[in-house]
Amino acid sequence: MALPNLQLAFPERLRRLVPATPRALAFGIPALDAALSQGVPRGQITALDAPLGSGGTTLLLALAEATLRADEGVALVDAERSLAPQAAAHLAALGPFWVVRPKANENAWWCADVLLRTGAFGLVIVDRVPAPARRVAVRLQRLAHDRDCALIVRVAQTARRQDCGGYQTSAYGAAVVLTVEPSRRGSGFVPALPGWGGAWPAARTLHVTTLKGGAPRAAEVVVGVPLPDRLRPHWAVRDRRAPERAGRRPQRKSRR
């Protein structure tokens, strides 16, 4: 078969086999992907600097979802063993996705090492883990490079920064640093359902700053809090809560 015919027969698969540009990973969030011009690089460590409750896990799961939709395997090492399964359950249906929950959070690095060596994953996430020793970081970076895998790391403590060649990078040699801070301005609570007085947290805004060798770039990501199934109406079940709680508003308290 002549090459033009072959390209006609398998254009999509040939495009995947010989990519025109280096394949980086995207979050699937337009504002954030625009700030990360080349995406999350493969073969490198990307640091996510997000304190507890700031929305770091949300961004990691969004990156995992976009990677799975691109037909790549994803492994997530949940070092603190606190991720709620319902938060990540939708990912298991998209492709090869596993969550590794080590006994102790310091074992997460060893788990990441084993996972990287398989070469089966396009993305390995290590979430809420103690900062790695320098030699561990170097070994993992080499493994990620050899296996063409993106390794994204979120340490439990805020990463120490050091000035390196005119731009800031984390102490463990990450090529890209994402800093996440939630909006401190109260976004309030809204009625969970129209006509029902029960309140639920409103969507909040995350401020994400990307450091990738140049000037920091900022992006804002709006994150909603999913309504649990117990609060959703069902067509076959009459919602008897509305008359009881109608008119109630969330109680607020200003900062002391």
Binding site: A26, F27, G28, I29, P30, G55, T57, T58, L59, L61, A62, E65, A66, R69, A70, E80, S82, L83, A84, Q86, A87, A88, R204, V221, V222, V223, G224, V225, P226
Partner: peptide, 13 residues
């Protein structure tokens, strides 16, 4: 591959 319509916060328990 398509953009994610809405980003949902992840619960940790």
């Amino acid at each position: 591959h398509r953009p994610i319509e809405s980003v949902s916060a992840a619960l940790r328990i």
